[in-house]
Write a protein that binds this DNA or RNA. Sequence first.
DNA 1: ACCAACATGTAAGAAGTTACATGATTTA
DNA 2: TAAATCATGTAACTTCTTACATGTTGGT
Lengths: 167, 167
Amino acid sequence: MQKNMTGYDINKEFNHGLIDFWYAKHSQIYPELKKLVNEGLIAYKIEISGDVLEKKVYSITDAGKSDFIEWLCQDVEIEPTPKDVFRLRMFFSQYIDRQTIIPLIDSQIKQHQKKLQRLLDTNHCFDDIPHPYSKEAGDYLVLQGAIMRENYYLDWLEKCKQFYQTS
Amino acid sequence: MQKNMTGYDINKEFNHGLIDFWYAKHSQIYPELKKLVNEGLIAYKIEISGDVLEKKVYSITDAGKSDFIEWLCQDVEIEPTPKDVFRLRMFFSQYIDRQTIIPLIDSQIKQHQKKLQRLLDTNHCFDDIPHPYSKEAGDYLVLQGAIMRENYYLDWLEKCKQFYQTS
DNA sequence: ACCAACATGTAAGAAGTTACATGATTTA
DNA sequence: TAAATCATGTAACTTCTTACATGTTGGT
């Protein structure tokens, strides 16, 4: 929808980029692209890199665009709260002894702080709030959401830590 | 781990109860229980309800307990941010026109407010903060996490709404 | 020459959803 | 006696992960 891309490009955005709300492995991406071509929603042109290496550069078709916009405008029910393995662990935290649980929580805090820092570094790209309906609008909104999410999660982790420390 | 349960009980907790961090359909639960029995991690006794209805009441074995505790105490890497369809939609929000997007966001706000209210109602069960290592500790921590999550998500939705309103 | 990155796929299996399928018990 | 809830399963399918599999290009 936003630019022509190869499967490799999509994989890079999902796994090395900043997209923090969706992902897929290349082993899922390539078959899925094939499927979308069969459905007429995307099409590709082969480009040659160097001497022989073939790149399949995909673009969205008109049918794909209208399908996508239709999907985008639908009012939908909220999803169930996503599964969270660490929340599951905390649910059973009564079975972890005190000298074990604090380092476990600290490890999560450390990792989430690192993630948050990475998001905040990216946030400097937006010196000004982008204009609605600009092409940066989506990036901006999801990045704000990601930052807010990490902050809430860290607050919760701190709460868990204090719960087991002050007793 | 906490009490003996039937597959039906587990399904009820997942789909009608308050567990807000994990779920499964009964069509997944029954085969999974069978698998765990084969692995010797759980066992069941048949109880008769009424005249003939057979209930399989499952309990965890010693092997299951030690396996579980071992899993529980492991220090693990944080998971990737879970997929979020509405975040995905907002990423592409530039393609939604103004009279459409605001009701879409409002609908999400309404649904999350309802969910939050349900969580807050449950929260009244905890007049006092439960004691760490009590059996309510896990319930308490995940409920606080769920409430914090809904609050953060509502804040983000409001931010999205304002972004598209003030322009 | 070597290595990192570019580039594209398939196969086997695990996890999860939807639909199919059946029957008993309790409550109004 | 009808409906809601209790109770347990299977089948087909989609989704996702891990591992297998191959070859090119660009930089040092």
